[in-house]
Design a protein around this nucleic acid. Structure first.
Length: 298
DNA sequence: AGCCAGGAAAGCG
DNA sequence: CGCTTTCATGGC
């Protein structure tokens, strides 16, 4: 376990690194060394591993960053305790992966990544994210391997839409470039957005970025701004909710009605509920690979 | 208010 | 190997 750079060990409880990094919240962590993962948080390169259930290993010096990023300060008893009592669907999803945490990503890389995520599957989003990082991101050497930061708004603004398009994101290049320009030119500030106390105001402000609608705004609020009540509704969540909750059963339930139900039903930690349900729906029945042909079953 | 373009790749037969 | 499916947003 030694030899490739110093690591620190952090005691953890109710934590699952693999599930946390591979549940559609963040898309750039790559397997590296002894079951670990390598990547960056902002400008900080990190290697992470969970050699035992109760231990997290992290690049020495990165302990505080890792703890914050991985949501290790969250009080899971309080969060689980806040969930609706009679909800068997949610109870099963939590039991399936109780160690899942909501990550706290730097706002820009979260916003940018989710702008490139629209109408894409997880594997595609990974490719786009890694291509952008390799081509435009600051490079670090860690454990004998190159890792790249997510490129800053100024970098992507200067790169131009065409160069972004070459990273495989198609028409999303326009939205990403416009967002980078807005921030680089100071027309918007993510620090200012972080200061908005009102979730509704933050949601509105995020939707002013081209390419950001209701769903992506909710993802950024949850994974990039730590607003744990945000409940992103994508096609997966729509299916899960309509199949399991009589209040929104039926194909013709409108997305906004589904959203309204979720916000009300799951409460102040709805974002956690969403992530448990999402992960269970995607990974709970098929071993791997397939995105899940679960239609027609209950 | 509902319809549809738009981009790339994973999954299927 | 080629055909189908997957996906959220915005603009009409």
């Amino acid at each position: 376990m030694k030899g490739i750079g110093a690591t620190a060990r952090i005691a953890v409880e109710d934590f699952d690194l693999e599930a946390t990094l591979h549940s559609g919240q963040v898309f750039h962590w790559e397997p590296h060394g002894e079951g670990g993962f390598i990547g960056t948080v902002g400008s900080i390169p990190l290697w992470l591993a969970q050699p035992e259930r109760d231990a997290l290993e992290v690049t020495a010096g990165g302990e505080a960053v890792a703890k914050a990023y991985l949501g290790l300060g969250d009080d899971m008893r309080e969060i689980w305790g806040s969930f609706p009592g009679e909800d068997e669907t949610l109870r099963r999803a939590v039991a399936f992966s109780p160690g899942l945490r909501i990550v706290r990503q730097p706002a820009w890389e979260c916003l940018a990544t989710f702008i490139t995520s629209s109408l894409k599957q997880v594997a595609h989003i990974r490719q786009i994210s890694l291509a952008l990082r390799r081509r435009f991101g600051e490079r670090h050497l860690l454990r004998g391997r190159d890792v790249h930061e997510y490129p800053a708004p100024e970098t992507l603004a200067a790169a131009g839409e065409t160069a972004l398009r070459e990273c495989g994101m198609g028409y999303r290049a326009k939205s990403l470039h416009r967002a980078a320009l807005r921030l680089a030119q100071g027309e918007a500030s993510l620090e200012d957005l972080a200061g908005l106390e009102s979730n509704a105001e933050l949601h509105e402000a995020l939707c002013r970025f081209h390419g950001v609608g209701d769903k992506i705004a909710n993802c950024v609020m949850l994974f990039g701004f730590g607003r744990l009540n945000s409940f992103p509704v994508d096609v997966w969540m729509s299916r899960v909710l309509r199949r399991n909750y009589s209040a929104v059963a039926g194909e013709k339930t409108t997305p906004s009605r589904v959203q309204e139900f979720a916000d009300d039903h799951f409460g102040p930690y709805g974002g956690y509920a969403q992530q448990y349900l999402f992960h269970h729906a995607r990974c709970g029945r098929e071993p791997k690979g397939s995105d899940g042909r679960v239609e027609g079953r209950v």
